[in-house]
Design a protein around this nucleic acid. Structure first.
Lengths: 231, 231
DNA sequence: GAACGGTACCATACGCTGTATGGTTTTGGC
DNA sequence: GCCAAAACCATACAGCGTATGGTACCGTTC
């Protein structure tokens, strides 16, 4: 039990009790602000007004916190109901996943973690449910989800790598690139041409590539699905 | 200059001089053996028979070593020549990338790094060259590469997450999963069904999903390419 | 009202990390 | 033999995760 219950009248401010959830929530905020490496047990403990070792009463290890953070991120994603048409559901799921991962870029590297939490599992379960309800065979569900998830996760990773400003345009590095332009033209002519005629053009934003790939993939899955239905 | 040139006759064993390349090569070996977190400046220095601070004469920082490691990995990938048909070239590139990333799983997390080396840039340049030679418009090159690279990288990441034994089958965790099977059946029925009827079946190996997605994507790109050629 | 078991917290310490600072030695060329 | 540059080194600092072994407080029970 907490030393100072919320009902304590003596304290002017009812202090929120320390829990794993609160620690995880705080860790997410820290990571959002300064990247994953700015999450430390000592910093977390300080923010919770306890000593580092006291944190271990609520949490098994730092990895335990990472697991919690990843599951917290998954819980931000939309989980479509089974009544939605599968294509719209997958589209929404992909867009939502990308948006959430763009909001928490540190989560992408945590994604390689091997102990999924309830939100993660629920997310997967719901997705399988949608495809099954639409008549997908189990192997096709496997194909479709592997393909979609690989693409979305990979895209999020590529996107996180790019040095973008808030608008999605190429940011401050543009000058640096232009400075090296001549050197690049010699060694990597195709890359230089692509930079000049596509990427550095005013209207270009890498984020727009997302929908192209997504449409192509969904189109292909649709084709597969129809062929198994009729065949 | 090296203290003991290779030609030195006094030393029974001609000691290889310490260089950035050698440090990076060693770091790759360390990471292959024990994961990325087993790469430390102190361990590297010890293996090179120098003190930690001496390493900084050859290398700018630990991040510099990471950059080198990633570029070393990229240099292991096949770079197809422009004379190869684009589809075969992309297929080969994707397979090679996946194989190399499976050999060095730690490289996947390093991939988010923002200072590409010469091998990385050369790899990109060659790929653009193949597509351009095949008549792809620059925007279509952008679409195709974003899609392919996102998929391959995402797949490699998913694959690295899975607890696989050498054969590619689900390994020792199978019993753990089966133990939790009943609990899962209640909370996540679709997931449980998929595990039982697909993933835990004898013949199933997640790695096989790779080719399905790859074919679907290449098929889609081919369609796009043809439509821009004829249209 | 005293004793008790669990809950929540804490102090100290160990071994590890990357690297800043400011030397010292060794070397090839003159 | 001298010198600048190259290669290397010792010391130190601030931070990290966490093992170990405590201590203060709580509601419950006798």
């Amino acid at each position: 039990m907490p030393r100072k219950p919320i009902e304590t009248a003596t304290a002017a401010v009812a202090r929120e009790p320390v829990t794993r959830e609160r620690a995880v929530r705080l860790a997410v905020a820290l990571a959002d602000a300064g990247g994953i490496e700015s999450v430390s047990m000592r910093k977390l403990a300080t923010e919770l007004s306890i000593t580092p070792m006291s944190l271990y009463y609520h949490v098994k290890s730092k990895d335990d916190i990472f697991d919690g953070m990843l599951d917290a991120v998954y819980s931000e994603m939309h989980v479509p109901g089974v009544d939605v048409a599968w294509r719209a559901a997958m589209l929404e799921r992909a867009r939502s996943t990308r948006a959430v991962l763009a909001r928490h870029p540190w989560a992408i590297s945590l994604d390689a973690r091997t102990s999924p939490g309830p939100a993660t599992l629920g997310h997967l379960d719901a997705t399988i449910g949608v495809l099954r309800a639409a008549g997908f065979s189990m192997p096709l569900v496997g194909h479709a989800m592997s393909l979609l998830d690989s693409y979305v996760q990979g895209f999020a990773m590529q996107e996180a790598t790019l040095p973008l400003d808030a608008s999605g345009d190429i940011g401050a590095v543009t000058e640096d690139i232009l400075a090296q332009q001549e050197m690049m033209s010699n060694a990597f002519p195709n890359l230089a041409e692509m930079a000049a005629t596509l990427i550095l053009q005013p209207g270009y934003a890498y984020g727009n590539e997302f929908e192209f790939g997504l449409e192509l993939i969904l189109h292909g899955i649709e084709r597969m699905h129809r062929s198994t239905e009729s065949g």
